[in-house]
Design a protein around this nucleic acid. Structure first.
Length: 333
DNA sequence: CGTTGATCCTGGGCGC
DNA sequence: TGCGCCCAGGATCAAC
């Protein structure tokens, strides 16, 4: 679901919300989504939260870290201890603190969470019915319980996302991240991650080199996280629109000027979206439940058959690889 | 090695 | 309120 601006928005929210806290316990309701030994990070102070491409890294004082990838439909929702918030308490007053409820065969007591938390109590909640219900709910797969009674809920409709406990001594070179997952007999878990889309190391020379002789389209190249990390389906369309380049043009055939233009617009588009809190279309919301506003400003993404904001031509949508690609057939060459 | 397509999941929406 | 199909902010993995 989230691309760099959405992940960055979440990371900023987490830095506000969870730094300095300690985790008391973690409820893993769907085993396959949690890799490693969760006990490693219990009762250790959270030092900070970072982003690498679309991956979230939560650092702990004891040298371990929690890596999170939200994939398509992952959500992180942070909620303070409800006891402190009388409005939420009142809103859910129908539920008695001692009553039980069941999520995926696991029994919880209302009192485990003070009261069950309604997302309606959080900045308007989610417009989609399936999410607009008390937490934890059907799509909650992991619950992180902090020592002070606050909770971080991981929801994921499609269950593509994951969390992993990692050792701290990760070597972060320019583009390669070697992570040892402590739990699986130090099995080497290697992720190849390209230069971050907002890094100043992203230069025309680097891209020219990466695109050389490649037969894939520029759309696919922008989606390749081993070249640039952080760009996904929305922003690749938006960047190519601004750069006036057709998405199906071969990456290897771009000239120097086109590559420079792409590099120029990457931070412009991504930072604009970060300023707007990202793109909330169906699933993504911020950690307080509120929505990002970039979609209302999109040039082409999700605007098939609508008029181009610059020339009024109908926006087209085609398939490239297995992804939808939106573009203006007049503006983009 | 580079490229393509199937695959992990669940739900919404559309046509019939 | 059925069935079949396509669609969805992602990214592996097998097969050519």
């Amino acid at each position: 679901m989230p691309e760099l601006p959405e992940v960055e928005t979440i990371v900023r929210g987490l830095n506000q919300a969870i730094v300095g806290r300690k985790i008391r316990s973690i409820d893993v309701l769907v085993d396959k989504l949690f890799i490693g030994n969760k006990n490693k990070i219990l009762n250790s102070k959270i030092l900070g939260v970072e982003r690498l491409g679309k991956t979230i890294l939560i650092y702990f004082e004891n040298k371990y870290l929690l890596q999170i990838h939200l994939k398509m439909t992952g959500q992180l929702i942070f909620l303070e201890n409800k006891i402190k918030n009388s409005k939420l308490e009142t809103r859910n007053s129908k539920q008695k603190p001692n009553s039980n409820f069941k999520i995926k065969n696991k029994i919880f007591r209302i009192s485990d969470f003070g009261f069950r938390i309604s997302t309606q109590g959080v900045v308007g909640g989610h417009p989609d019915k399936k999410y607009n219900q008390p937490l934890p709910h059907k799509y909650t797969h992991i619950i992180i319980n902090f020592t002070d009674g606050s909770n971080l809920f991981y929801n994921d409709l499609r269950k593509f996302g994951w969390m992993a406990i990692c050792q701290r001594q990760i070597e972060i070179k320019d583009k390669i991240l070697n992570i040892k997952i402590s739990d699986q007999n130090l099995k080497l878990y290697q992720q190849i991650i390209g230069i971050d889309a907002l890094s100043n190391k992203l230069t025309p020379k680097y891209l020219t080199d990466k695109f050389k002789n490649r037969k894939i389209t520029i759309k696919q190249a922008l989606l390749d996280q081993s070249i640039i990390s952080g760009i996904g389906n929305i922003y690749s369309d938006e960047i190519l629109f601004c750069a006036k380049i057709l998405p199906y043009k071969k990456a290897g055939k771009l000239n120097e000027s086109e590559i420079k233009t792409i590099i120029k617009f990457i931070p412009i588009i991504l930072n604009k979206s970060i300023d707007l809190g990202g793109t909330s279309r169906s699933d993504y919301i911020k950690i307080d439940g509120s929505r990002g506003d970039y979609f209302n400003h999109a040039f082409v993404y999700g605007r098939e058959n609508k008029k181009c904001r610059k020339c009024n031509t109908k926006i087209k949508r085609i398939k490239i690889g297995q992804r939808s690609s939106h573009f203006c057939p007049n503006c983009q060459k």
